[in-house]
Design a protein around this nucleic acid. Structure first.
Lengths: 342, 342
DNA sequence: TTGTAGGCGTTATCAA
DNA sequence: TTGATAACGCCTACAA
């Protein structure tokens, strides 16, 4: 406790050291190590060997200072303990890595102030591009992007935004697919367990749900819409609320799979059987959806694709290419066992 | 497509700019901005205001180059789509942030080569410390740490290692708790769905399981031990295998919660009821464990604590303090509905 | 209390 | 094909 260890700071090998050893100038070493064209094969090989031998490690820091590029992407996510996010992050990371970029990860927990700080830090570190998942900020990013001249891409921002570079699933279509599916199974009283109304994608899913009802002349009953928290707890409570109604729904569409998992449990607690008594549909198709019991009928978002496209978008923007944006990704109905005819 | 956008590179405001504007030297500005003691309150305030007004953003890059510290921690994880990992990462991230450090995240997917590359990159970027979760590398880190003079902390390395700075759960004790619990419920034929034998913590959990049996004079039957993949699929198949035995077990202990979730499904597919026919115990206590049906009896690892302690350990080491290591964290039995008397 | 000078490790621009 | 020189933006002596 408190005992201090003496650390002998091993001075790092620099290109100067190599230059001295090889009897050439630092410039030449730099050229050799960066595989520049104008250098003789002989010295190049010699320098490479020497660098290897001396244990040379290039300093990304120094390089960044002079090139003004860090080969770094800042990634701010709401939280990582969300299966949906957890599927997107590796996709981003792998595309970044292929392009030889590193990813700075920070969580903002849907707190505006924290998100601001995180992005500020990215700026200090001079990341070359920024991706924000489930941003709680409004339109600020449009300004920031212009002011800093750094590409910023938003994935599924929580608030509606005029920011141009966004990627998200087609929530309206997805919700419609889900609701249509339930209607096709013969259901007429269909509930929706959503999220607080300020969450844009929740609102869009509600819209899709309503459109689908309208298209089939099924009246919209506000009693059948309850609000959750996008996690299991909200689903559990939402389901209990719905099942306690005088005329409970025979089918329930959930904002996401986690909500559905909670709803499943809520149903069991109330002795409601899924899908025999009530059909259930989720949204996202996280890997877990197929492993729960009953396997969950859900709307598939391709998280991998979303992550890849978003990362590619920043890379393109960094390269000065214009890209197609905003990007609204297709969704797909995946029918499993949690939904059945009435 | 391919259309190129002209980007006007807004030159960043530097301390020189502020110095010129304020009519002082860059050094003074630096002092003011860093709240150094030897500066008059007047100029300090003036410079702060000016910096604000001019939109000054300090360059972490330049600062790092001169100070030789990046205030950055490299975090290599196996994958982020694992609930256990997903719980640890935010803990690390938040401790780091409190100490004013940023986290570089990379996934190594339990591939030795990739892990090596990731750590190499950390070196280029001169991270001040490194944390590796589920490292696939063996003892290399001891050497690296000495060679680079960078603190490296391993969380639950996959292979046994002589590396000193490690943090992991007490696997043996945890497995014993689980098995004891099942024995106490009257079970005698207890299965174990594990992971490949080269995974050290899997081996330790197997050891704990065997110790517990031994202590109660229950013979160890190798038929009751099957190997999974630490994910749902492995649990599903493992359970099917176990239930197909001539003398199937009446209780099953799983390597982790995901395995247990798969096992749950495997049981249902074979019309085996949990816990009526077979009791089930997991390991980790991921948040999901309490939300599935039946809620899962499991061994709790405090992922938050593990992450915090690991991060604190690198911070301590970076500060030159010696710390207690290796750290073996306590586990705890959490009884829910998936286990019951025989 | 303030300023000057030097350097952190690279790369870029010239000139040789 | 090579080398000298000057940045990049900041901090840390040391001097004033």
């Amino acid at each position: 406790m408190g005992k201090t260890v003496t650390r002998t700071p091993v001075r790092r090998v620099t290109i100067k050291d190599i230059a001295r050893e090889a009897g050439v100038s630092p410039t030449t070493v730099s050229r050799a190590l960066n595989d520049k064209p104008d250098i003789s094969d002989g010295t190049k090989a010699r320098i490479h060997a020497l660098a290897q031998e001396m244990g040379y490690v290039p300093s990304a820091i120094a390089r960044s200072l002079v090139t003004q590029r860090t080969r770094t992407i800042g990634l701010a996510v709401r939280t990582i303990s969300d299966l949906w996010v957890a599927e997107i992050v590796p996709a981003i990371e792998s595309v970044a890595r292929e392009a030889d970029y590193e990813v700075f990860l920070s969580c903002h927990y849907a707190a505006a102030e924290l998100e601001k700080r995180v992005v500020e830090t990215f700026r200090n570190r001079q990341v070359d591009g920024i991706i924000v998942i489930s941003s709680i900020a409004g339109d600020e990013y449009r300004l920031l992007q212009a002011k800093w001249n750094v590409p910023i891409v938003l994935i599924a921002p929580l608030l509606d935004t005029t920011h141009h570079y966004t990627v998200c699933a087609d929530d309206v279509e997805g919700a419609q697919l889900a609701t249509d599916h339930l209607i096709a199974l013969g259901h007429r009283r269909i509930g929706y367990i959503g999220v607080p109304s300020w969450v844009a994608c929740g609102q869009r899913r509600l819209d899709g749900y309503r459109h689908a009802l309208l298209a089939q002349d099924i009246p919209y009953d506000p009693c059948l819409v309850v609000l959750g928290d996008a996690h299991e707890q909200g689903g559990l409570e939402g389901m209990q609320l719905l099942m306690a109604l005088l005329q409970p729904p025979t089918a329930v569409f959930c904002f996401n799979d986690l909500t559905a998992i909670g709803a499943l449990r809520g149903a069991r607690l109330m002795n409601v059987r899924i899908p025999e008594n009530v059909s259930l549909v989720g949204f996202d198709d996280v890997p877990l959806a197929q492993h729960i019991d009953p396997p969950l009928t859900t709307i598939r978002q391709d998280m991998d694709e979303i992550g890849r496209r978003a990362c590619q978008m920043v890379l393109d923007l960094m390269a000065g290419h214009e890209t197609v944006a905003p990007l609204v990704m297709e969704t797909r109905l995946v029918v499993r066992k949690s939904s059945d005819r009435i």
